[in-house]
Simulated scan of single mutants.
Amino acid sequence: MDYFAGLTLQNSIKDIIDVLVVSYIIYRLIIMIRGTRAVQLLRGIFLLVITWALSTWLNLYTLKWLMNQIFTFGIVTVLIIFQPELRRALEQLGRGKLFMRSSPEEQDVSQRISEVMKSVNYLALRKIGALIVFERYTGLNDYIESGIKMQSKLSSELLSNVFIPNTPLHDGAVIIRGDQIMAAGCYLPLSENPFISKELGTRHRAAIGITEVCDAISVVVSEETGQITLALNGQIVRDIKEESLISKLFEELRPQFKAKGTEWKAFWKRKDGDSHG
């Protein structure tokens, strides 16, 4: 009550500006870390805070003591864990880009699938091995940095050319973010699942491994058989047919976009045009 009694117009304006500035800074930080592994780390920190609050409220002394010990070293831990994000934020701040308004480009999911399918069919017909990874909500920057950065517009011709044998980029994975090929020759974690068939080699184990640690989607072309395999959530579908692969890719990638029904129709329209051409 004392606060509102002594409240003046000048103080009100200052408080409003204060709240707006802090809110905008938090908003920009959220935009900056969106699509990276920092999101999962923040969720873990949030759960720790909730656990600490419950232990205090319920007087769980042992759990409360444990939480206090964790928070004692929490600042140092956070600085270590979020070191890449903090460095990127400071770099953007120095360049004056942290507070610039972002305008994400509208991406055409059906066009992406069309380009990838043209390349996959080309490679499968010639039994050229390939590993293609679609980045989704979890960022794959760590794996992108392990390969050769490209940041090129996605096209079936470029994608096919990357995997041609005896070329510098053919060995490893291609990572696709939106409508760009971010990098080629990337190293992925291999799955240690003991139930994976012994017939599957390193390429398939890498395709499964990346989907075990994040929400990415992998498409593999076998160089022995030319079969196409889809990997998702640590599971694979071997020798998947073209129609099923298109349907599954569209189903999994579509939530990232606004216009859903029109893109699907446009994709089949382009497919019909290609077949007549």
Results as ranks from 00 to 15, higher is better:
residue 1 M to K: 06
residue 3 Y to N: 02
residue 6 G to C: 03
residue 8 T to G: 14
residue 10 Q to W: 12
residue 17 I to W: 13
residue 18 D to N: 07
residue 18 D to H: 09
residue 19 V to A: 11
residue 19 V to C: 07
residue 21 V to L: 10
residue 23 S to E: 07
residue 23 S to R: 11
residue 28 R to E: 11
residue 30 I to V: 11
residue 32 M to R: 07
residue 35 G to K: 07
residue 35 G to A: 06
residue 36 T to H: 11
residue 36 T to F: 13
residue 37 R to E: 14
residue 40 Q to R: 11
residue 46 F to I: 08
residue 46 F to Y: 13
residue 46 F to Q: 12
residue 49 V to L: 12
residue 50 I to K: 00
residue 50 I to E: 01
residue 51 T to F: 10
residue 52 W to D: 01
residue 52 W to R: 00
residue 54 L to K: 06
residue 54 L to Q: 02
residue 58 L to S: 05
residue 61 Y to H: 10
residue 62 T to I: 15
residue 67 M to S: 15
residue 68 N to V: 06
residue 74 G to Q: 02
residue 77 T to P: 06
residue 83 Q to D: 15
residue 86 L to P: 04
residue 88 R to N: 15
residue 89 A to G: 10
residue 93 L to R: 01
residue 103 S to T: 14
residue 105 E to M: 03
residue 109 V to Q: 05
residue 109 V to K: 06
residue 110 S to A: 06
residue 111 Q to H: 13
residue 114 S to V: 04
residue 116 V to G: 00
residue 116 V to E: 03
residue 117 M to H: 08
residue 119 S to G: 12
residue 121 N to E: 14
residue 129 G to A: 14
residue 130 A to T: 05
residue 130 A to N: 10
residue 136 R to D: 00
residue 137 Y to F: 13
residue 139 G to A: 05
residue 139 G to H: 05
residue 140 L to A: 08
residue 142 D to F: 11
residue 144 I to C: 13
residue 144 I to H: 08
residue 149 K to G: 07
residue 149 K to S: 07
residue 150 M to T: 04
residue 156 S to A: 11
residue 157 E to I: 09
residue 159 L to Q: 00
residue 162 V to W: 04
residue 164 I to H: 02
residue 165 P to S: 01
residue 167 T to H: 04
residue 168 P to S: 04
residue 170 H to V: 07
residue 170 H to K: 09
residue 174 V to S: 03
residue 175 I to S: 02
residue 176 I to Y: 05
residue 177 R to T: 01
residue 182 M to D: 03
residue 182 M to F: 04
residue 183 A to R: 04
residue 184 A to Y: 09
residue 185 G to N: 10
residue 188 L to W: 12
residue 191 S to P: 08
residue 193 N to K: 06
residue 193 N to E: 12
residue 193 N to M: 03
residue 195 F to W: 14
residue 196 I to Q: 12
residue 196 I to L: 15
residue 197 S to R: 14
residue 199 E to L: 13
residue 199 E to S: 12
residue 200 L to V: 00
residue 201 G to Q: 04
residue 201 G to T: 01
residue 206 A to H: 07
residue 207 A to D: 05
residue 208 I to V: 09
residue 208 I to H: 01
residue 209 G to P: 07
residue 211 T to M: 06
residue 211 T to I: 05
residue 213 V to Y: 11
residue 213 V to C: 11
residue 216 A to F: 09
residue 216 A to T: 02
residue 218 S to P: 00
residue 219 V to Y: 04
residue 220 V to S: 10
residue 220 V to I: 13
residue 222 S to V: 07
residue 227 Q to W: 04
residue 228 I to E: 02
residue 236 I to E: 08
residue 239 D to I: 07
residue 239 D to R: 15
residue 242 E to W: 13
residue 242 E to N: 12
residue 244 S to A: 10
residue 254 R to H: 03
residue 255 P to I: 08
residue 258 K to L: 14
residue 258 K to T: 14
residue 258 K to D: 08
residue 259 A to R: 06
residue 259 A to D: 12
residue 261 G to L: 12
residue 265 K to D: 14
residue 265 K to Y: 15
residue 267 F to S: 00
residue 270 R to M: 08
residue 274 D to C: 00
residue 276 H to T: 06
residue 277 G to D: 03
